[in-house]
Design a protein around this nucleic acid. Structure first.
Length: 803
RNA sequence: GCCGCUGUGGUGGAAUUGGUAGACACGUCAGACUCAAAAUCUGAUUCCCGCAAGGGAGUAACGGUUCAAGUCCGUUCAGCGGUACCA
């Protein structure tokens, strides 16, 4: 065994041996339980950053653990390779997005290999390859045929200089993030996916994920889907029937005005000055419900209350959302905060119809109805039922469910993405390309010197013919949102080279992903889209399960000095430098040890030193264990030996639970450190015979190996020349030593710790009391006091209650 | 605003079912080894009083339940995350 721990020598050597052993290759094996472990694949932005290292280390620890547990593990990796940064880089460096992306992939692949992650590299996927996106195009066509894809006009952020659509997060203070030009809202025609058809299913199936996904992610998805049950009420008015949507029909008698969105169609029937007012004010930012930002105008028209037949003024207001509900709202200022502010500002009537705990308005909770005709005295819930019943039977309304979730806009006016396989024929026909023409390849000869989407002015690509009719046609030049690629990659990893279909039956063997690992920032979009896609694939009988990701871990961000690492702040830590200095095992160990995985992690170089120090100690311990010898005279285990066995077996039990049930990886490291310290101490004391030390040290190596695989593999080979560490089984604690006879009881007086006693755990309560109450130290407290009672907790504690 | 989460030493954090608060580390201090430094090893390290033995306080604040509360309940404060006129 080498004198000193030299990771720079060990790690490359060991990694080469792993490649030769081919241990990471995943094959279908129906005799074994499968385990699919997946970390969110990276965008190939250039170099690996610490956030990547964290996600992939967590995934690797779990994958390696499950292999030791005897599971058949799939642990793949790939590249989310389409996306805007490649275009920007191409624009700035005059390279092609493809070359830039492929170069980055090469660099990051070698970095991942250096860190020793146990991927099945034969399954590597890059989403920008035709073999991958051809199936997306095929699937898009199927969805189109099923009516799940449609085109409609929608408002987008438009950068007039770059001639491109910007995502909301790319608009900073109303200006384009790159051009600095004032962003315009523009209405353009885009492709949409009918995710709203699946709103109920996406909501209901969250139940299946309960206890396996973090609660906050489930809540965020629930809120995002935003299901609310309410009532549509018809108001007769000067401008025809107006439908409104409300979740509080119990407040119907408190309606003092109606408010419509400034985009509402009824506006056409109003005076020119009103139309003009709405035109100028409809796009004004509407943040906050303070009176200043609330804007409205009286339409001059009236509606009739369905019950009281009173005249109710109709207003246009900027706080009414056009595309939620019906775009018209019944306003009850006494019981809604925004209606209240609006009524105050424009001096409108406020009519109280619910009495509750508080007298201050607006009172927005449920309560008892008043001033509500026949419904006075009823509780809100009961009143809603009866009012709904009346409205329905008199054709004045209906009960309906609304969702906040919008259909998914998937068009991007970009080059570096999957081409949408549609054509616009000369005769006006919009249709998918013939499936035999797939894939519609992204051209490589593009011109980035002209602003806008290069596909738009690539004439030989754009102008084409319809295969069926031979008629002239123009290709769709929009490409797909890159969330499209990341919505099904987890399934494709099961059969990455399948070239006759999108997915084959292997996907149904490996899916669902048993453990998914990734950042919380994907809590809604990616995870919702992937769930949706899975349901689409299920509907097409391609996949069987209901959900793609059985269990989810969301890890926190890696920070430096309390803020996010970024190039502009100059506070980045390059994993490469650290790996070169300390080795991959130290980096992996530190990133696991420093913090629970869901917390954010503030990077500290000092902490890395500490992890490195531990591995050196572990290495030196291995050397000592190898040369350790002791007298082997007695058959019976000594008390020291029993304590030692108890301690290590309890550690095995705890660590197994930590990794398997609690996802508490940092405490695994602490436990291994404690055990290491115990071994060092006991070797020095020479009280434990060498067979025990040897046997249990081997178990300790296995326990630590998912986190620091290189050093553990190397040390293992020093002890066991026949079988390497991958052939071993995760240790099972020996039950004989989990509950030993002599344990430390703590004795409390009135809940305060006073003394520790080493006693046999099986002693009767009476005997314990005799020993404890006759102890001189305890007597000091109990003399001249009345003992009210004594509480026993078996094997642990005695609490004496005195007065 | 609404929804969710979190508040523990100088720092990261541990305490899994209500039962020894501060494990394991980092940092700091002291000591050993060394001509010296690095590395390594040993010890101390929540705060207050005390030479010590020992005693007291203590998990954001206040209150409650309990023999016993970091853990459960209520109120307040602070921070983080999501979302925003969604009727």
């Amino acid at each position: 065994m080498q004198e000193d721990y030299k990771p720079q020598e060990i790690e490359p050597k060991v990694q080469k041996e792993w490649d030769e052993l081919n241990i990471n290759k995943a094959k279908i094996d129906k005799d074994k339980e499968k385990f699919y472990c997946l970390s969110m694949f990276p965008y190939p932005s250039g170099k690996l950053h610490m956030g990547h290292v964290r996600t992939y280390t967590i995934g690797d620890v779990i994958a390696r653990f499950q292999r030791l547990k005897g599971k058949n593990v799939l642990h793949p990796i790939g590249w989310d390779a389409f996306g805007l940064p490649a275009e920007n880089a191409a624009f700035e460096n005059k390279t092609s997005p493809r070359d830039w992306t492929l170069k980055n992939i090469d660099q990051m692949r070698s970095q991942l290999k250096q860190l020793g992650f146990s991927y099945d590299w034969d399954r590597e996927i890059a989403t920008c390859s035709e073999d991958y996106y051809v199936w997306e195009q095929w699937f898009f066509i199927q969805l189109y045929k099923d009516g799940l894809v449609y085109k409609k006009k929608s408002l987008v952020n438009w950068d007039p200089v770059d001639k491109t659509v910007l995502a909301n997060e790319q608009v900073i203070d109303g200006k384009g993030w790159r051009s600095g030009a004032t962003v315009e809202t523009k209405e353009i025609s885009q492709w949409f996916l009918r995710i709203t058809d699946f709103a109920d299913e996406l909501l209901e199936d969250l139940e299946l994920l309960k206890d396996h996904w973090p609660d906050n992610v489930i809540t965020m998805q629930k809120n995002w889907i935003g299901k609310s049950e309410g009532t549509i009420v018809n108001f007769d008015s000067d401008i025809g029937n107006l439908e409104i949507f409300t979740t509080r029909v119990d407040t119907l008698f408190g309606v003092t005005f109606l408010a419509a969105s400034m985009n509402h169609e009824s506006i056409k029937q109003c005076d020119a000055n009103i139309i003009k007012f709405c035109e100028t004010n409809k796009n004004i930012s509407q943040a906050g419900d303070d009176q200043k930002s609330l804007l409205g105008i009286f339409s001059g028209k009236y509606a009739t209350h369905p019950f009281t037949k009173q005249k109710i003024p109709i207003w246009f207001a900027n706080y009414i959302v056009d595309d939620y509900g019906t775009g018209v709202v019944m306003c009850v200022p006494a019981h809604d905060t925004r209606d209240f502010s609006f009524a105050k500002k424009y001096d409108l009537e406020i009519k109280e119809v619910i009495k509750g705990k508080s007298d201050t308005l607006p009172f927005i909770s449920h309560g008892t109805l008043c001033s509500s005709g026949d419904y006075d005295g009823l509780e809100s819930k009961e009143a809603m039922k009866l009012i709904n019943k009346y409205l329905i039977s008199n054709n004045l309304g209906s009960v309906e469910t609304k969702f906040r979730l919008r259909d998914w806009g998937i068009s991007r006016q970009r080059y570096w993405g999957c081409p949408i396989p549609m054509i616009y024929r000369d005769d006006g026909e919009v249709m998918p390309v013939d499936e035999s023409e797939l894939p519609i390849k992204l051209p490589n000869d593009i011109d980035f010197t002209v602003a806008g989407n290069p596909l738009d002015h690539h004439e030989s690509w754009k102008y084409t013919k319809c295969k069926l009719t031979g008629k002239d046609a123009i290709r769709e030049t929009d490409t797909l949102d890159t969330f499209f690629e990341s919505s099904w990659y987890q399934a494709r990893f099961a059969c990455p080279t399948e070239n006759t279909s999108m997915l084959n039956n292997d996907a149904n063997y490996w899916l669902p992903v048993d453990q998914y690992v990734g950042g919380i920032e994907h809590a809604v979009l990616h995870l919702l889209y992937a769930r949706f896609f899975h349901k689409l694939l299920r509907k097409k009988n391609i996949l069987k399960d209901k959900e793609p990701f059985k269990s989810l871990i969301t890890q926190g961000m890696v920070l430096k000095d309390g803020s996010k690492m970024s190039k502009s702040k100059g506070n980045t830590i390059d994993p490469q430098d650290l790996v070169e200095k300390y080795g991959a095992d130290t980096v992996r160990l530190f990133i696991i040890f420093a913090s629970p995985i869901e917390n954010s992690l503030d990077w500290s170089d000092k902490g890395v030193e500490g992890s490195y120090r531990f591995l050196k100690r572990f290495w030196n311990l291995a050397k000592e264990v190898k040369s350790y010898s002791s007298k082997e005279d007695s058959e019976e285990y000594s008390k020291d030996e029993i304590n030692f066995l108890s301690s290590i077996n309890l550690t095995i039990k705890k660590v197994s639970n930590d990794i398997e049930n609690r996802y508490s990886l940092n405490t695994i490291v602490s436990s291994c450190m404690e055990s290491t310290n115990l071994f060092i101490k006991e070797i020095k004391n020479k009280r434990i015979r060498s067979k025990i030390i040897n046997d249990y040290f081997m178990k300790l190596i296995i326990i630590l190996s998912p986190i620091t695989p290189h050093i553990c593999y190397e040390i293992w080979n020093q002890f066991d020349k026949k079988d390497n560490i991958f052939k071993q089984k995760w240790p099972v604690p020996d039950k004989n030593y989990l509950e030993i006879d002599d344990v430390v009881f703590i004795v409390q007086i009135n809940g305060k710790l006073r003394k520790r006693f080493e006693l046999n755990r099986n002693l009767k309560e009476n005997d314990i009391e005799n020993i404890v109450l006759n102890d001189d130290d305890i007597k000091k407290y109990t003399d001249n006091k009345e003992i009210v009672k004594v509480i026993h907790v078996k094997g642990k504690l005695v609490n004496i209650v005195i007065k």
